[in-house]
Amino acid sequence: MGVREIQAEEITRTIRRLCIEANTILGDDVVDALKKGLEKEKSTVGKDIFRQLLENAKIAKEEGIPLCQDTGMVVVFIEMGQDIHIVGGDLNQSINEGVRQGYRDGYLRASSLDPLVRKNFGDNTPAIIHVEIVPGDQLKLTVIPKGFGGENMSRVALLTPASGMEGIKEFVLRTVEEAGANPCPPGIVGVGIGGTLEKAAILAKKSLLRPIGQRHPDPGLARLEEEFLEEINRLGVGPQGLGGTITALDLHIETYPTHIASLPVAVNLQCNCHRHKEAEL
């Protein structure tokens, strides 16, 4: 198989478009989940919140206004075929240039800054870029503008192997309960189990990308997802943490082998404004 060339400029153009679309157009699966939530929610305040979120998605799409003012820090997952050769520029720079253009042209809020100096860079770069090299000659780009209401409430625990399933469940439920209103429920709960400290966190984030309602292909994990979701929705946290029967729209689990001495678990909380857009080049 030959090498396929992809222009860096094409990556920039695509990232620019994905940043704007992700921030203004809520995915169909999220809209459907919000509609179902409106029907199922028992709290009157909660129902009113679901109505506002659905109306918000409509206004954002029609008028090109960001769904949420926190247009996030841009996380980019890249699946890059090993037979691809990027020409005409640097991969990271071409992505950051796409973010810069997307946030400028889409009137999206710039939030990135130096962690200690804390002066806003003004262009929302750099993106957090995760590259995975895979077989083939395709390039898949996924943009998640990640709001920090949910990010700030996300947690990682390096549990002991003896903690087992009960320990995992206790940690997931405690994280959601303690987060309460702050991650803007009802959202998606991403759970990464296994690997190392950073692997668990990346698994949790990546699990958010699975469409709402789609269960893990492993039947055991699929059952676990249903069980955790049901228990989370029994906490009573509800829409915006003001009490209700729907705290999470869905929960996804991803796993990876780990070390005999550990049981890493990461919980990445995603807000109701679950933004992500993909493109394949």
């Binding site: 919140i49 506002q52 979120l53 109306e55 918000n56 206004i59 954002a60 008028e63 206004i65 960001p66 769904l67 949420c68 003012q69 926190d70 809020r109 710039a110 939030s111 806003n120 003004g122 209401g149 209103a181 803007c184 915006q240 003001l242 807000c271 109701n272 404004c273």
Partner: peptide, 27 residues
């Protein structure tokens, strides 16, 4: 409390906006 995640909807109720201090802080 207002609804987090409803920024486009809430913006509709804002009829005028003017920076009165700390412009250097951007958003």
């Amino acid at each position: 409390a207002t609804v987090g995640g409803a920024g486009a909807l809430l913006a509709k109720a804002i009829k005028k906006s003017e920076v009165i201090a700390y412009e250097d802080l951007g958003p």
